[in-house]
Design a binder for these strands. Structure first.
Lengths: 142, 142
DNA sequence: ATGCAAATGAGAACCATTTGCAACTAGCTA
DNA sequence: TAGCTAGTTGCAAATGGTTCTCATTTGCAT
């Protein structure tokens, strides 16, 4: 996309700073991730990455995703009855609405809900570390 | 506990009405589930059920849990990085707070959040079918 | 009692993900 | 630029929770 090149170089920088080597395979996976507008799973990422570098193996996709997740560059989501799906962690925090019929994922954010969650945790004597909020929905029939 | 006997008979009735046979093994699993105050996983249920009926196999635990889930008697939860955990579906709807250090699960309910979720789905053109809200927390340090 | 569809135990099968290993290679060093 | 070495890779095998297969048993309506 438009300036994905910069974004990719930025991500590669983050990796190098984190002591993670930027290999041919990782560069390919990173590019695919940066350009993805959806929430692909590991095998879909593998399929796409192979178009850039045919040598990328599924193992490497998984290993790279784990490394990227640890660097905070990628987020992993385990939606109901499905394989893990991934997205770059550049956008601000948001939750997900999953279309039960198509599997499509829509991002949304509600500051009210975020705040209520923290309040609930506090009331119960806890500090909220992270949360998971997923809405499983069907397109409204008119 | 106190009147769990009635509860168990009630559950058995639901099963029979649903065309599901109440076998010795299922009765044992049902009893364990009705008495559980926590959110055990399949192998823990297996462990406990065997104390009532040593013949219960893990296969049957899984099969029974699926049957109970279909009858709406049991709910399955897939918390982060963990095996599926179960609870009887008698209590009114609630969400879960998971203690990251102990794995303990605390139930809570927020009508405000419930309402906000439906509103968000509606705004995006969807009908909310179900949702998942989990708060991963640590005990507050005083 | 009888008959038969439903249920069971044991173990194999599934399948997404992880891991062991020997052969590479990114990227610092001289 | 060549060399070094710890980090990476592809492949295949392992993992582990959960589901399925199949021969045998059993609940329960008749």
């Amino acid at each position: 996309m438009r300036q994905s090149k910069n974004r990719i170089e930025e991500l590669e920088g983050i990796l190098r700073d984190g002591g993670v080597r930027v290999t041919r395979q990782r560069a390919a996976i990173l590019k695919i991730l940066a350009e993805a507008e959806d929430h692909p799973d590991a095998s879909e990422l593998h399929r796409r990455a192979k178009e850039i570098d045919a040598t990328v193996s599924l193992s490497t996709v998984y290993r790279t995703l784990s490394a990227l997740e640890q660097q905070g560059v990628v987020q992993r989501h385990a939606f109901e009855n499905a394989t893990a799906r991934f997205e770059t962690a550049d956008a601000p925090h948001h939750d997900h609405l999953i279309d039960l019929d198509t599997g499509a994922v829509i991002e949304f954010r509600s500051d009210k809900i975020e705040q209520l969650q923290a309040e609930i945790a506090a009331e119960l004597g806890y500090d909220l570390v992270r949360h998971r909020l997923e809405l499983y929905c069907r397109k409204r029939k008119d």
